[in-house]
Amino acid sequence: MRRFLFRNGLSLSFGALFVATLVGQAFAGVADFNDNRVANGLDPISLGRFVTSSNFGADVMENWQSEYLQFFLYIFATVWLIQLGSSESKEAHKRGTESDEEQKVGKYAQADSPAWVKAGGWRTTLYSRSLGFVMLALFLLTWTASAVAGWGAFNNEQLMSHEDPVTFVGYLVHADFWNRTLQNWQSEMLAVGSMAIFSVYLRQRGSPESKPVGTPHKDTGQTG
């Protein structure tokens, strides 16, 4: 068990932090939601009722979708775009999808390469882009979920203020949906851009996200 925890420390720690912060969001969310209800002359709702509301679902999904968009864009953009001096970037001459030899595919596959690499054909082509594709699929799924849950939450608010509910398509072109979406996208783009450029001049000793401390600013890539 200790060996399992040690070997998966990074994923398990963030998984635990995710659960803890989601619980925190539920408690803070119901308190905020009830403040609004009381101000509108309505009875407060329980925590259980709040975490099974479309309002909670929309709040969760609108943040998830932007994270997966960020990773999808970053994974594909870093194949083609470089940032001189960044630990997040490849060196300029490695731009693009690189050779089969560098990527260990085709006749350069190794005995212990993943099965779909050794299989060749469409399976290797698909597997070669699987990380980006899964991030794209998760972005599209979470964005759709955020739209559906946001629609439910929006219509509940419409009914609370005695206004007409909107259709799903109506919600997709409504300012509420785009405000929820874009306020999350903008923060992700800023964070990614900051990471790309800050890692040129700043260091974190021992982190694989940083170049080694003594590496010159002009050196690009993980190895410095």
Binding site: T52, G57, T142, A145, V148
Partner: peptide, 30 residues
């Protein structure tokens, strides 16, 4: 690598459950 694969599957299940759960809340109009 068995333990690592278990964590990988756990993440996928957690994410897909979250997506399904939140979509259902919206569809039910809760």
């Amino acid at each position: 690598m068995k333990g690592v694969r278990a964590v990988y599957v756990l993440y996928l299940v957690m994410i897909l459950f979250g997506i399904g759960y939140c979509t259902a809340l919206g569809l039910l109009g809760r």
